[in-house]
Simulated assay, not measured.
Amino acid sequence: MSSPRSDRTAAVAPAVAVLLVAVVIGALVGTWPPFVAVESGSMTPAVERGDLVVVTATDRAPWGDLAAATDPDAPERLGGAGDVVVYAVPGAGGRPVFHRLAFHVDAGEDWTERADQDLLSGDCAELTTCPAPYDGYVTHGDANELYDQSAGIAPVVREEWIAGKALFAVPNLGWARVGVDAAAARYGGVATAVVVVGIAGLAGGVGALVVGRVRHGKRR
């Protein structure tokens, strides 16, 4: 007959295993959390909404420093040349952006001269992000019609705003995170946390019940 303690251990073991895997991956890639759940289709077709992306620190060996799409010998990342990064504009209040580094710009540069003209909404005089106010990056979602700096998504992206860069994506594993974030935005973080904890407890209880019955059946 199984003991209550062993049943509790069986219930929490999967969660502990997932946490340990996340900690190990975080130690390897040098950033936390080491995963990003993709919430939009701006990086299709290589990365779809609901995919889970493993990210690393921008200076983590052996993946090297940041590389833009136009850099010589730029690495292939998620279906294209150059690093795909997670960045957030301080004080903007929006969610982090997951887009590709198109090219690096220097302070005072008219970066539209080097840009793909099909991804611009106007010339330098018509863009608030041009000339570049400081050193940084022009960025772009692979599926978007314009650069972020031309579409008004973000100013020129400073390197210190970049939280990590993508290594690879796992299809559909990010839907749980997307769902939690959407619920938190609609109902609030506390209410969402209560529901998530309740679901986790229910799942653990069901798992412990199933494990207990299987063990009981084997001993009969």
Rank of each mutant, 00 (worst) to 15 (best):
Glu145Cys: 01
Pro131Trp: 01
Arg114Ile: 00
Pro90Thr: 11
Val178Gly: 03
Leu28Val: 15
Ala203Lys: 02
Val97Leu: 14
Val178Ile: 08
Ala37Cys: 03
Gly30Asn: 11
Gly41Pro: 00
Ile199Asp: 06
Gly94Lys: 10
Asp83Asn: 12
Tyr137Gly: 04
Gly141Pro: 09
Val180Lys: 08
Val38Gln: 00
Ala46Asn: 08
Val23Asn: 03
Ala27Leu: 15
Leu52Trp: 00
Gly204Pro: 07
Ala81Leu: 11
Ala183Phe: 03
Val196Asn: 11
Val18Cys: 14
Glu159Val: 10
Gly188Asn: 04
Leu19Tyr: 12
Asp71Asn: 10
Ala74Arg: 01
Ala92Asp: 15
Gly152Tyr: 03
Val210Glu: 02
Asp116Gly: 05
Ala166Ile: 06
Ala15Met: 12
Gly188Glu: 04
Pro14Glu: 08
Pro75Gln: 07
Ala46Tyr: 09
Leu167Val: 01
Pro33Asn: 04
Ala154Met: 02
Gly164His: 06
Val138Phe: 15
Asp71Cys: 09
Glu113Ile: 06
Glu48Phe: 09
Glu145Tyr: 09
Val170Trp: 06
Ala13Asp: 01
Ala13Thr: 06
Tyr87Gln: 14
Gly207Arg: 15
Leu66Ala: 12
Arg60Cys: 09
Pro33Gln: 03
Ala13Trp: 00
Tyr87Leu: 14
Val38Arg: 00
Met1Ile: 10
Val97Thr: 14
Leu127Asp: 12
Tyr134Ile: 00
Val97Ala: 12
Phe35Asn: 09
Asp83Lys: 07
Pro155Ser: 06
Ala57Trp: 08
Trp32Cys: 00
Ser42Pro: 08
Leu127Cys: 09
Val84Asn: 02
Glu159Leu: 03
Arg158Lys: 13
Gly164Phe: 10
Trp63Met: 07
Val85Tyr: 05
Val38Phe: 05
Trp175Asn: 01
Ala46Gly: 08
Ser150His: 05
Ala11Lys: 11
Ala15Leu: 15
Gly26Val: 09
Tyr187Glu: 01
Phe98Gln: 03
Thr31Tyr: 13
His104Cys: 00
Ser42Cys: 08
Ala151Arg: 07
